[in-house]
């Protein structure tokens, strides 16, 4: 009788770590590009003088935060394909991840900007500062401090969220776990390892955020 199930071995651990690298790469790409989108959205959403822009920003955030990320990736790859728009796999997974990041981080940026009180804005205006100067010297220092904890909170969520890229065929950490589980049936062992590796990626991020938060508080 042939060997039905593969025995769990060190090779599987290596396979998981390989998957973890894909997770990290994908996450770094999505977060850095998403941040640019987020700044734009944060500014659009706080632009008092342009209501139309504000509504577009609102709609964008609602759609990307109100639907499952899995569906966003699914639609970008398969849905657009049905409409005749073929995107390469890498692009099809990048766009939704970036826009998803942009929506969540955009809200965090907005909250940061709005935390700067009216008085501070007006003080800046009356000193004759331009919009750019205001943003740079008055808003940014306060906003960044407020933004750090939720940003890292989201980053940690994004690390886990990239697992949904499996739907277009990427073998990252979670998918690697399923693959091993399905050929070894060692489900609990495999997913304990998967959880531990995610923790290994995320915990340093959480720790760094706490340190940074304390440091900035001291400077304030």
């Amino acid at each position: 009788m042939p060997e039905l199930l593969v025995a769990f071995s060190y090779k599987d651990v290596l396979f998981l770590l390989q998957g973890a690298l894909v997770t990290i790469a994908m996450c770094a790409m999505a977060f850095s590009c998403g941040l640019v989108v987020a700044l734009l959205i944060g500014l659009i959403r706080t632009a008092r003088r342009f209501p139309a822009l504000r509504w577009i920003g609102w709609g964008y955030v609602e759609i990307f935060r109100g639907t499952p990320l899995l569906m966003q990736i699914f639609i970008a790859y398969f849905g657009l394909s049905i409409l005749g728009l073929e995107l390469p796999r890498f692009v099809a997974v990048s766009i939704p991840l970036i826009l998803y990041t942009g929506a969540y981080m955009g809200e965090i940026v907005r909250a940061g900007v709005e935390a700067v009180s009216r008085g501070q804005w007006e003080a800046g205006w009356s000193l004759g500062m331009s919009y750019r100067q205001l943003m740079r010297y008055v808003v940014a220092p306060v906003a960044v401090r407020i933004m750090i904890p939720p940003s890292v909170g989201f980053l940690v969520q994004l690390v886990k969220g990239t697992s949904l890229a499996y739907v277009v065929g990427y073998v990252e950490l979670t998918r690697a776990g399923y693959i091993i589980s399905q050929s070894t049936y060692a489900t609990m062992l495999v997913f304990t390892l998967v959880g531990a590796i995610y923790f290994g990626i995320n915990y340093p991020l959480s720790l760094a955020s706490q340190r940074l938060e304390i440091r900035l508080k001291r400077h304030a």
């Binding site: 909170g153 940690v156 979670t174 959880g195 923790f199 995320n202 959480s206």
Partner: peptide, 19 residues
């Protein structure tokens, strides 16, 4: 907080269901 926030939901689900 750290244990839950830094691990995937599916792993937590398996642990509660099977654990």
């Amino acid at each position: 907080v750290e244990a839950i926030r830094n691990t995937p939901f599916i792993v937590q689900l398996f642990y509660v269901y099977f654990g």
